[in-house]
Design a protein around this nucleic acid. Structure first.
Length: 274
DNA sequence: ACCCGTGTTCGCTG
DNA sequence: TCAGCGAACACGGG
């Protein structure tokens, strides 16, 4: 369930579950593979591996292994990690299972199978694709307002679309891009090149706040996503036709940009809709 | 049965 | 070169 904050929650889980532990058995049902990785090469490289502290950049994860190299993971649309004891049933949608020396098993499940798994040849994963193509990580090393404005000023695309380009800034997906723009009171259709310094500052605050909604709510298992049957935790996402919770005047609108649904309040976010 | 979808990539067109 | 569009990937859920 992955945009940056959800992936960060998964990284914390992997840190608690994997770091310092060794692999005794690998079960792998090939889903998407990182270019250059084959199932056989992954199994060879992971044989008996001892895992170190996992790292995240944007929505990408890497778990370095003692002695060199790292397991690469991307959750796609529906990737999820869970943990069980070795004698418990294999979860539905399993794509990867890491059996550890302490008797626990860490499973990677992915119903929709858009996830990717791979092997990176070095601990310095940022040297390699896909890490080397990412813009600044919006949680770990967020740009300054000026840097963000400069990054966005290079494009004539709508802000919502530019913000989702992982090469511009890394971590925002379809939900949090709409949410952050709503918090910053900026219309999603504004061109990246039109963003002012003040607006860039508002946008950074909006991004931080929208991420915080997920990170502070981390109870270890459930993440606030709309598809879980829980009430929609978001302010505009999935709320087309509803009254804006902030101004109580606008009715949330929905439009498709770059093939993805964008939601916004036409009253709060009216600035130069362009 | 139909439509939608948290991500990413590729090909085509203007 | 850039931007926009549609499709593709594969499958569950409303």
């Amino acid at each position: 369930m992955p945009e940056l904050p959800e992936v960060e929650v998964h990284r914390r889980h992997l840190d608690a579950w994997l770091a310092g532990h060794s692999l005794v058995e690998l079960l792998f049902k090939p889903a998407g593979m990182l270019a250059g990785t084959t199932p056989a090469s992954l199994e060879t490289n992971l044989q008996g591996a001892r895992f170190l502290a996992p790292l995240r950049r944007g929505k990408h994860l890497a778990v370095p292994v003692a002695g060199g190299g790292a397991l690469y993971l991307h959750l796609g649309m529906t990737g999820h990690f869970s943990r069980r004891q070795g004698d418990e049933a294999v979860p539905r949608f399993q794509t990867l299972s890491l059996h550890l020396e302490n008797g626990t098993v860490v499973d990677f499940t992915d119903a929709r199978r858009f996830s990717k798994v791979g092997w990176l040849p070095d601990h310095d994963v940022t040297r390699y694709a896909p890490f080397n193509a990412l813009g600044p990580d919006l949680l770990l090393s967020p740009p300054s307002a000026k840097e963000l404005r400069d990054l966005l000023s290079r494009t004539q695309r709508p802000l919502k679309v530019a913000l989702m380009d992982q090469g511009v800034v890394a971590g925002l997906g379809n939900i949090h891009a709409s949410e952050a723009l709503w918090r910053a009171r900026i219309h999603p259709n504004r061109l990246g090149s039109s963003l002012t310094l003040v607006e860039a500052r508002q946008l950074l605050a909006g991004i931080a706040a929208t991420f915080q909604l997920v990170l502070q709510d981390d109870d270890g298992e459930t993440l606030p996503y709309v598809t879980q049957g829980a009430p929609n935790p978001f302010s505009v996402y999935g709320r087309e036709g509803e009254r804006c919770a902030r101004c109580r005047k606008g009715e949330i609108e929905r439009a498709v940009q770059a093939g993805r649904s964008t939601f916004w309040c036409p009253v709060c976010q009216s600035s130069n809709a362009g």
